[in-house]
Computed example of a mutant assay.
Amino acid sequence: MTPRDAADANDKRDDGPGDGPGASRWSDLDRPPLNSVALRRALVREDGLWSSVEVVQRTGSTNSDLVALAAAGKVAEGAVLVAEEQDAGRGRLDRRWTAPARSGLFFSVLLKPAEVPVERWGWIPLLTGIAVATGLSRAAGVDTALKWPNDLLITVDGEERKAGGILAERAGADGVVVGIGVNVTLRADELPVPGAGSLALAGAVSTDRDPLLRAVLRSLEQWYGKWRDAGGDPAASGLQETYAAGCATLGRSVRAELPGDRSITGEAVAVDGDGRLVLATGEGVQEPVGAGDIVHLRPA
Score class of each variant (00 low, 15 high):
T207N: 00
E119I: 03
K112M: 11
P113C: 09
G292K: 04
I124A: 09
G232N: 09
E257L: 14
I166Q: 02
D293R: 05
V184K: 01
T281N: 04
K112S: 14
W97K: 03
S137C: 01
E77K: 15
G292T: 13
V205Q: 05
W97L: 00
A244V: 12
G290C: 06
V67K: 15
N63W: 01
L39G: 15
G175A: 12
A196N: 06
I294E: 10
A133P: 01
D261R: 15
T2R: 14
A280E: 07
G78T: 13
R102H: 08
D233V: 08
R58H: 12
L29M: 15
L29V: 12
D143R: 13
V80P: 03
I166R: 02
R276N: 09
T281A: 09
E85R: 05
R255N: 10
N183H: 09
Y243Q: 11
A200S: 02
S137H: 02
R120I: 07
A168E: 10
G251T: 03
P192E: 01
D11Q: 14
C247D: 05
D189Q: 10
P21L: 07
A196V: 01
S52Y: 07
V67M: 05
E169H: 12
G122R: 12
G164K: 01
A139D: 05
G266N: 03
V75Y: 06
L201R: 08
V44L: 11
V80L: 05
G91M: 06
L146E: 02
I166D: 00
V216K: 04
I154M: 01
A114V: 08
R161K: 13
W123S: 07
T59F: 08
V176S: 15
R25Q: 00
A215T: 09
R45S: 15
G172C: 14
T249H: 15
D274F: 11
A72R: 14
Q222V: 11
L34Y: 06
D143T: 08
Q57F: 02
D47C: 14
G164V: 01
V53H: 15
A215F: 07
Y224D: 06
D143S: 07
A200Q: 07
V55R: 09
R25F: 01
L191Q: 10
A163S: 10
G89S: 13
T265N: 06
L126K: 15
L152E: 02
G225M: 15
R92V: 02
R187I: 08
L29D: 06
V44A: 11
E267Q: 07
V80H: 13
G22M: 12
L201Y: 00
L152S: 04
E221I: 04
Y224G: 05
P33F: 01
L66V: 11
D15L: 05
R90W: 03
G104E: 03
V278I: 12
P259W: 03
P149H: 15
R170P: 07
L127R: 09
E287F: 02
A99C: 04
L43M: 14
D157E: 13
L69F: 05
P100M: 11
P288R: 11
G78A: 10
L279W: 00
V116L: 08
P125I: 12
A42C: 12
V37C: 13
G158W: 04
G135V: 03
G197E: 00
G179R: 10
G18W: 03
V193M: 06
V216N: 08
P32K: 15
A173P: 13
V53A: 09
L153A: 12
L111H: 07
P211C: 12
K147D: 04
G273E: 12
E119H: 06
G292A: 09
